[in-house]
Each structure stands twice: as structure tokens, then as C-alpha cells.
Design a protein around this nucleic acid. Structure first.
Lengths: 145, 145
DNA sequence: TATTGTTATACTCTATAACTATA
DNA sequence: TATAGTTATAGAGTATAACAATA
């Protein structure tokens, strides 16, 4: 057929495969540390906003609060985060990194940086920067839905 | 913590959310046509390489051949693709678009183009082009795994 | 009444394994 | 032996609904 673009030129297809490749690289980079990209996301949120409620962390990460329960269960079992009661509001947990968690997040970020460099290897610095800036702009100013 | 990047700056996070947003926009754009982005992917592959075996289509789309069975079942039920026997190799099906399928792919591409424009609205033409070229480069020259 | 954390459940997407028929 | 299509099944990831405790 004429005038029909190849599937490989569709933005949805390109984003899906770029994301899948990044996920695979992160998995390989983080597995030796006993963690993965989703857990690293939680650790980064906690490192930036600590201590905070589970709900705060879920909102910042963009996941449901029921998803956060399971993520924190896993991280707590590894001893890298701790829950403690919120003094003023007893419905809430305060969540924070342990010393082991602080150590892990440092090492995990370095490993994930390597994975990002591997993904971006085909691009020069200008193209890498443009890609990152464009994606950040979409995340910030994107359509409401 | 110091020296720890915000989760919103991680490439994995940015790609995941850009992909999710593109998927949501495609879903809204394609639902009135009774289809979705995955089906459009199949239709685009067929429009470019028709007729071909299910296995060929699966490889080109980057999905498992068992996934392609279900996708084609749905498209065949809608009357937009047809399977017929391969003359020379009776293990294979030849898959092709019907007239209704050719009509649908034309309309679906236009709808999906609108969705892509909506995603890229925050970017100027230079930034949109840079994003698209970078993603295409990653898809072409990306790391083997 | 509304919110936090929790559990149970269901849904989507996809892959793996096993089967049939062909080659 | 290997491959195409099919089916059944299982897994990952996530959301929805319902509940208890608390505000």
C-alpha cells in the first residue's frame, strides 16, 4: 500500500521498544545488586523525600498506593527501608531508608547510569541531550490525560 | 541525600511514562475506529509485506508467534484481515488485508498521527525531530540484548 | 465522610510448553 | 528433526473493590 508508514516509524512503537531495551539493560545492571528498576524508583523517591508516607511515595512515583505496599514489603524484607508510625496521624506509616538502603541507592544509581550510557551509546552527546530534554519536557508539560 | 538524582531524571522512568502517555493517546484516538495500537501495528506490517506468513508478521512486529495468533483472530473476526492457505507450504497461512482492512489502516494511521501530534505538542519542530531521530537510531543501532 | 494502609481479586499483556500437521 | 500454527497455561505488573483503623 502507498502512503502507509512503516510500523518502525510510529512513535508508540519506538517508545515501546526503547523502554523495553532500557528495562532490559537496567535489569542486567541491577540484578547483581539484588534489586531492579522499580525498587530503585522507590529508593530514589525516598532519598529525595524522607521520611514520608507511603501515599506520598506512591504519588511521587506515579503508582497506586496498593502497588507501593508490595514494593515496600520487598524493600523492607531486604532491610533497605523501614516503616515506623507517624506520630501525629496514626493512619500513616513514615517510610525511610536504612543505612543499608542509603548504601544500596548509591551503588544502584551508578549501575543504572552505566545502563543508561549503554542505551545511549549509538547517540552522540548532542543527540543524547536532545532526547533527554525532549522526554523531560513531555513529562512536565504533557497532555493532561 | 546528596548526589542522588531525582527519579524524574532517570531515562527508564522518562521512557516508561512517555510510552504510557503515547499509549493512552493512541487508545483514545483509535477506539472510535474499533481498534487499538497493537492491532494497528499488525495492519501496518501487513500493509508493507502482504501477503506473508504469520511468522513473518510476528518477527517484523517483534512479538511471539503465539501472540500473533490472538491478534489475527481478533482482526479476522472484524473482517479486516484474511488467512488463506500457502500453496507451496501447507504448514503456513498467508495473511493479507481485506478491502475493509485497507480502509481501516488508512483511517487508523490518520487518527494515530493526531495522537502523536498531541504527545509532541509541548515540543517545537526541532525538538520533535530530534526525539524521533534519536529513538529511530536506538531502534536501529541499539545494543544487541 | 474521607483517608491510609492492607488484602484479595481480577485484568492485561506476553511468553513458555506441548500438540498437530506438515516439511 | 525442524518449523508453522494452535491451544493451554503461567507469569509479571498493575489496578479495583472491600475492609479496618483513624481522622
Amino acid at each position: 500500500m502507498e502512503g502507509i508508514p512503516p510500523v518502525g516509524s510510529r512513535l508508540g512503537h519506538l517508545l515501546k521498544h526503547a523502554q523495553a531495551r532500557m528495562a532490559a539493560l537496567n535489569e542486567r545492571a541491577l540484578a547483581p545488586l539484588g534489586t531492579d528498576a522499580r525498587e530503585l524508583g522507590v529508593l530514589l523517591v525516598l532519598a529525595a523525600h524522607e521520611p514520608g508516607s507511603q501515599r506520598d511515595a506512591a504519588d511521587r512515583l506515579g503508582v497506586d498506593r496498593t502497588t507501593m505496599v508490595a514494593l515496600l514489603d520487598g524493600l523492607e524484607a531486604k532491610g533497605v527501608v523501614a516503616r515506623r508510625p507517624h506520630g501525629a496521624d496514626r493512619r500513616r506509616n513514615l517510610v525511610e531508608l536504612t543505612d543499608a538502603g542509603r548504601d544500596l541507592v548509591l551503588r544502584a544509581v551508578r549501575a543504572s547510569d552505566d545502563a543508561e550510557r549503554a542505551l545511549l551509546a549509538p547517540l552522540d552527546d548532542a543527540a543524547s541531550g536532545a532526547l533527554r530534554r525532549a522526554l523531560e519536557r513531555l513529562a512536565t508539560d504533557g497532555p493532561a490525560g
